[in-house]
Design a protein around this nucleic acid. Structure first.
Length: 560
RNA sequence: UCGGGGAUCGUCUAAUGGCAGGACCGGGGACUUUGAAUCCUCUAAUCGUGGUUCGAAUCCACGUCCCCGAGCCA
C-alpha cells in the first residue's frame, strides 16, 4: 500500500508480471529504445530510456538501442552519435545490441513483396494531395483508390520498378489494403513505402524507396524479439495496424504498450520546437544549459543519477500530465548536496577592509569540504585584510527580518572571524562601494569563546588570493509555465524569457577552485550548485549555475 | 462528434469492492558556523448525477470536460 521507494509497479510492469505468469513470452522480457536520429535527446527521452532499460534490468531481460532511421531527409549521423553518448551517460546498457531499422530494409522489402502476393498491398499512382482527398475526414469515410485493384503481377512489377529507381519522388507509393471506411484513419490503406531519392546516413544510395514508420516499427520489434514495445500515447491508435501487419505476415508478435510522454513546466519538449530554438539562435545550441536536452542538462551540471531519480519519482501512467520543474530541481539538489564539495565564491563582490587586521598579513583557515561526506576531507582557505563579500549580504537600512551585515552589526565570516561593520564607504553617486570592519581575533575559526552569538554567517573570499571567474546564471527559458499554449495569435517564441541568461564577470572564487576542470561540480556555499563549463580555461574559468540552494530568505522577500 | 484514450490534494502519483496514502510545492516549528541540509508538523483531492452493494475512487448507466488522430513525419 504505502511504498517509500519510488519505483514500483506501474501499470506497464504489472502487465509484464501478468505476461510472465501466463508464460506468454516464455518468461522472456526484452525492451528497446527507438529514437529517430533527427535531434538530440531530451529529458522526455530519459523517461523512456529509464523505463525501458529499468524494466529489462529489473526483470532480468534485455534492452536494445535501435535507431528508427527510415527517413533520410531528416536524419543525420551527428544525431546518432549524440544519442548514443547521451543514452550511455544516462546509464543504459544495450551491450552488443545497437541496431538500426535500416539494418532491416532488405527484410522489410521482402515482407512487402509477401503482402503484395497475399493481395494485401498495392501500388498507388494517386498524388499526395489526391490520397489526402480520398482518405476522407475524421467524420466521413474515405473512398478507394482507382488503382486499388491492380493485379498482383502488376503490383509486383511496379513495386520492383519503384525500388529500381524508375519513378520520380512522389509519383507512386505502396499501400496496404485496409478499410477506407474505418473509424481509425490509420487503417484507411496506410502508405508502406514512398519514393525518396535521398542519401541515407547508413545505406547511402542503395535505396530510393523507404519504409514508413508503421511498416518498419512493428516488424523491427518482431525481428529483434522485443516482448514489450513501449511507446507514447499518440501511437495508441496505430496499435491495430501494428498488430495487423505482424499477423498478416505470420511473424512473432510483440505487445505494444503506450504511456504518457513527459511534459515539464516552463519548457518545451518537442524536437521541432527545440530545433527551432537552436536554428533561430534563441539558445546557443542543443547543449545550451537552458535546454531540457540531456546534453544541456549535463552541461548545466545535472547528474545522470538526479535525472534517473526524477524519472522514477514522476511515475508512469496514461494521464496527460505536466510535471513541476521544481521536482527536477529538488532531485538535483538532493544528489549534489551529498556529492558536491563546498567552496566559497562571491558572485557580486563588495569589498571589505578589516581595519584592525595588519596590512600584508595573511593566514590559512580550516574549512570542511563537505559536511555531508566526511571522506571529502578539508582544506585551507586564505584570509587577509581585504576581502569580498556578497553585495546582497549587506543592507544599509535593513528591514526587520534581514539579519546579515548592516552598519554597526556583527556577523560571522564562515570558518574565519566575527567582524563588525564600522563604516560604509560610498561613491559620488551614493552607491556603497566598500565596508570598513573590525574583527575579533578571539573568534578565529568562527566561535566566540565568550559564547556570544551572531545571527548570520557569510561567505567571503580574500581579495588578494581570489580567482576571477565568469559565472553564467540561468533562469527558466520561458516566462509562462506552459509555453505550449500561448495566447491567441502568439507563438511559444513570444513567451521566451529575455532574462534566462545572465553572465557575471569578475566573480571572486577561493583559490582552491584553480585546478577545477570542465564538468566538475561544486556548491558555492549559500549560493547554489555550480559546474565548470567546457568554455573554461585555467586563465579564465567559467562556471554554470546548475541550481540555487533552496532560499528561504528570497521567499520571505518576495512575500513583502 | 467518426475512432482511440484520459479525469484522485496546487503538481505528479498510489489505493483495482474494505481507514483515500506518498512525493514535490506551500505554511508553521526545531536545529544550525550554509536563511542550506536534516528533523517534526500543518494545509489540501476521488469530474457530475443516478444506480448496484453491508461497504464504491474502484462495478453499472447517463452526462461533462480534456488529450490524440485526416504526413508520401516518427
Amino acid at each position: 500500500m504505502t511504498t517509500d521507494s519510488p519505483s514500483p509497479t506501474d501499470f506497464i510492469r504489472r502487465m509484464i508480471i501478468e505476461d510472465n505468469e501466463s508464460g506468454r513470452f516464455g518468461g522472456r522480457v526484452q525492451t528497446r529504445f527507438p529514437p529517430e536520429p533527427n535531434g538530440y535527446l531530451h529529458i522526455g527521452h530519459a523517461k523512456s530510456i529509464n523505463l525501458n532499460y529499468g524494466i529489462a534490468r529489473d526483470f532480468g531481460g534485455k534492452f536494445n538501442l535501435r535507431f528508427d532511421d527510415t527517413n533520410p531527409t531528416k536524419e543525420e549521423e551527428e544525431y546518432v552519435q549524440s544519442i548514443i553518448e547521451d543514452a550511455r551517460w544516462l546509464g543504459a546498457d544495450w551491450e552488443d545490441r545497437l541496431f538500426f531499422a535500416s539494418d532491416y530494409f532488405d527484410q522489410l522489402y521482402a515482407w512487402a513483396l509477401q503482402l503484395i502476393e497475399q493481395g494485401q498491398a498495392y501500388v498507388d499512382d494517386l498524388s499526395a494531395e489526391e490520397i489526402r482527398e480520398y482518405r476522407g475526414t475524421l467524420t466521413e469515410p474515405g473512398k478507394e483508390s482507382p488503382y486499388r485493384n491492380r493485379s498482383i503481377e502488376e503490383n509486383l512489377d511496379l513495386f520492383k520498378r519503384m525500388k529500381e529507381g524508375e519513378f520520380p519522388d512522389g509519383s507512386r507509393v505502396l499501400r496496404a489494403k485496409g478499410d477506407m471506411a474505418s473509424g481509425n484513419i490509420n487503417m484507411r490503406d496506410p502508405v508502406l513505402y514512398r519514393i525518396l531519392h535521398a542519401t541515407h546516413h547508413r545505406t547511402g544510395d542503395k535505396w530510393c524507396i523507404y519504409p514508413m514508420y508503421d511498416w518498419a516499427h512493428g516488424q523491427s520489434d518482431s525481428i529483434e524479439g522485443i516482448t514489450h514495445s513501449i511507446c507514447t500515447l499518440e501511437f495508441e491508435d496505430h496499435r491495430p495496424l501494428y498488430d495487423w501487419f505482424v499477423e498478416q505476415l505470420g511473424i512473432y508478435h510483440p505487445q505494444q504498450i503506450e504511456f504518457a510522454r513527459l511534459k515539464l513546466t516552463y519548457t518545451v519538449m518537442s524536437k521541432r520546437k527545440l530545433l527551432l530554438l537552436v536554428n533561430e539562435g534563441h539558445v546557443h545550441g542543443w547543449d545550451d544549459p537552458r535546454m531540457p536536452t540531456i546534453s544541456g542538462l549535463r552541461r548545466r551540471g545535472y547528474t545522470s543519477e538526479a535525472i534517473r531519480d526524477f524519472t522514477e519519482r514522476i511515475g508512469i501512467a496514461k494521464n496527460d500530465s505536466v510535471v513541476d520543474i521544481a521536482l527536477l530541481e529538488y532531485c538535483v539538489r538532493q544528489d549534489l548536496n551529498l556529492r558536491a564539495p563546498r567552496v566559497m565564491g562571491v558572485l557580486n563582490p563588495l569589498k571589505v577592509v578589516i581595519t584592525n587586521y595588519p596590512e600584508g598579513q595573511s593566514e590559512e583557515l580550516f574549512a570542511i569540504n563537505n559536511p555531508e561526506d566526511e571522506s571529502a576531507g578539508s582544506r585551507k582557505v586564505p584570509f587577509s585584510r581585504e576581502l569580498y563579500i556578497e553585495q546582497e549580504d549587506f543592507m544599509e537600512d535593513p528591514p526587520k527580518k534581514f539579519f546579515r551585515m548592516a552598519p554597526g552589526r556583527e556577523v560571522r565570516l564562515r570558518y574565519a572571524y566575527f567582524i563588525t561593520c564600522v563604516d560604509v564607504v560610498k561613491d559620488d553617486a551614493g552607491n556603497v562601494v566598500e565596508l570598513h570592519c573590525t574583527y575579533d581575533p578571539a573568534t578565529r575559526g568562527g566561535d566566540a569563546p565568550d559564547g556570544r552569538k551572531v545571527k548570520a554567517t557569510l561567505h567571503w573570499v580574500s581579495a588578494r588570493h581570489a580567482v576571477d571567474a565568469e559565472v553564467r546564471v540561468y533562469d527558466q527559458l520561458f516566462t509562462d509555465a506552459n509555453p505550449n499554449d500561448p495566447p491567441e495569435g502568439k507563438s511559444f517564441l513570444d513567451l521566451l524569457n529575455p532574462d534566462s541568461l545572465h553572465v557575471l564577470n569578475g566573480c571572486k572564487l577561493e583559490p582552491s577552485i584553480q585546478a577545477a576542470t570542465p564538468g566538475q561540480r561544486f556548491q558555492f556555499e549559500r549560493m547554489g550548485y555550480f559546474c565548470v563549463d567546457p568554455d573554461s580555461t585555467p586563465d579564465s574559468p567559467v562556471f554554470n549555475r546548475t541550481v540555487t540552494l533552496k532560499d528561504t530568505w528570497a521567499r520571505v522577500q518576495q512575500q513583502r
